[in-house]
């Protein structure tokens, strides 16, 4: 079981319940293949640095999960098929992933989890 980190951008026009439908669908794809979701982080709609498929904005979603390597192939194939996902990127987390310690006081700057990546 290796730790992967996927970030993908959802079409900005898709919002509300069909956005959550897309999200649930992809989480389902992972859990069906016995992947273990460690963290799902939605950044919400942000302005893209450059237009992607004619969209100036996009909704970012970050998923960190433990899985076998062929799970990732299937996951990416699904994302390519689905046109609501305009861009995605998967990384192997060499150092694994420790959930950041639950900080009582709200940290001034969100402590990002330790992730030293290599080629995906």
């Amino acid at each position: 079981m290796r730790t992967y980190e996927t970030i993908f951008i959802v079409n900005p026009q898709i919002a509300g319940d069909d956005y959550t439908a897309v999200l649930e669908k992809f989480k389902g794809v992972l859990t069906d293949q016995k992947a273990e979701l460690l963290k799902v982080d939605e950044w919400g709609t942000k302005r893209l640095a450059y237009p992607v498929k004619k969209h100036e904005q996009g909704t970012y979603v970050l998923i960190i999960f433990n899985a076998e390597n062929d799970v990732v192939k299937e996951f990416e194939r699904r994302m390519r098929l689905d046109d609501s996902i305009i861009k995605f990127q998967t990384l192997l987390l060499e150092g694994g992933f420790e959930a950041p310690a639950p900080v009582e006081a709200a940290p001034a700057e969100e402590t990002s989890e330790e992730a030293s990546e290599t080629e995906e």
């Binding site: 970030i7 302005r47 640095a49 450059y50 992607v52 996009g58 861009k87 990127q89």
Partner: peptide, 13 residues
Amino acid sequence: NIALLSFTSNRTV
């Protein structure tokens, strides 16, 4: 690659 940084001008994201 994931459009967080731009390839050319340094438009603030």
